[in-house]
């Protein structure tokens, strides 16, 4: 990995929070980096900790969550050591966030125009008129009529809302845009459209994307590299083409087999038996072992380490030790 174009480096991140049933480690030693202009996919079932990571990067994770270890480095700056003022200027300008449900991430009482204005005015010195122009411009770029600036969130359709949120996320032209399940709530056709629009925007503005989803199929054509998360840890990470061609981890195999390939040959859909573990008491050893068809005796007691099996292809599995 070349260091000059690396914009985000997460090392051994651990996030914990206290639930009623005891402390839960949602993210347990996650490390990865993102390069300039790259689309990095993070895939996994719900509850595996991927959304936690998204919010942790901006440090907007709600109490009672705490970051208990690791570091987040954004272009030579340590996010975990930033003061509130530094965070305020770091947020959105360098890294922005798109949530799964646009309806929930927009304040229902404020027009979308004003919500974009908020962001522009909080971070730049533009006067209101300039800011408004900029907001209108952003809306146009995502295919929304500028007069919609005066609309309230509930007046827009689902797809338009999501586009509006994306416009908001890009209005300061951040270096990295984190997109947490941005299309999950939409129907398939709109999903594809929006993904294409995102790609267009990416090439024209030139930002990186951390794309988080449970739907691996979305990532395959869209991201350069993919990391697979399970139960708070990364179990496999590589270039997407490589991952699809030669998946190593049984969980990855399961994920790949779980969705139909629209263009490819007919395959039997398998799915992964069992359910994600209870994070307050995850299984010992390899966390995936209760659901793994290839589990060995060792997997029950010893946790596998993430190792570079091939160049830029990392796996955490005893099958390959």
């Amino acid at each position: 990995m070349k260091n000059e174009s690396q914009i985000l480096a997460i090392r051994d991140l651990r996030v914990r929070y206290n639930s009623e049933r005891g402390p839960v480690t949602a993210v347990d030693g996650v490390s990865f980096s993102i390069m300039q202009g790259e689309v990095f996919g993070l895939a996994g079932e719900s509850g595996c900790g991927k959304s936690t990571i998204a919010q942790t990067i901006l440090r907007v994770l709600r109490p009672p969550a705490v970051i208990t270890g690791g570091s987040i480095e954004f272009r030579d700056r340590q996010v975990l050591e930033m003061t509130d003022e530094e965070l305020a200027s770091f947020r959105w300008r360098e890294v922005s966030l798109v949530f799964q449900s646009a309806m929930n991430s927009l304040n229902p009482l404020i027009t979308i125009g004003d919500q974009i204005l908020d962001v522009i005015q909080a971070h730049t010195d533009r006067n209101k008129r300039d800011a408004r122009e900029r907001a209108a411009e952003m809306l146009k770029r995502v295919g929304i009529e500028p007069d919609r600036l005066r609309s309230y969130p509930h007046e827009l359709s689902g797809g338009m809302r999501q586009r509006a949120v994306i416009a908001m996320a890009l209005s300061l032209e951040p270096t990295l845009a984190i997109m947490d399940e941005p299309t999950t709530a939409l129907d398939v056709l709109v999903q594809r459209q929006i993904l294409e629009e995102i790609e267009e925007l990416r090439t024209s503005i030139g930002f990186s994307i951390l794309f988080i989803t449970h739907d691996l199929s979305l990532l395959v054509g869209f991201s350069q590299r993919i990391a697979i998360m399970y139960a708070g840890q990364i179990v496999e990470m590589s270039y997407s083409s490589e991952l699809v061609r030669e998946p190593f981890h049984p969980y990855t195999l399961g994920l790949l087999d779980s969705f139909p390939s629209v263009n490819g040959e007919r395959r039997k859909l398998i799915g992964i038996p069992g359910t994600p573990p209870d994070m307050s008491a995850p299984p010992g050893g390899c966390r995936f072992h209760p659901r793994c068809a290839k589990a060995m005796e060792r997997c029950r007691f010893v946790a596998p380490q993430l190792r570079e099996l091939k160049p830029d292809h990392w796996v955490a599995c005893h099958l390959y030790d």
Partner: peptide, 26 residues
């Protein structure tokens, strides 16, 4: 009323809205 996490954490939450960093918290 937030009692989980102890008084130290509560103070952290009060001081700043950002997710606190507490290394080696058990």
């Amino acid at each position: 009323s937030q009692r989980s996490g102890g008084a130290i954490l509560r103070k952290l939450y009060l001081r700043s809205r950002a997710t606190p960093v507490v290394p080696n918290e058990k």
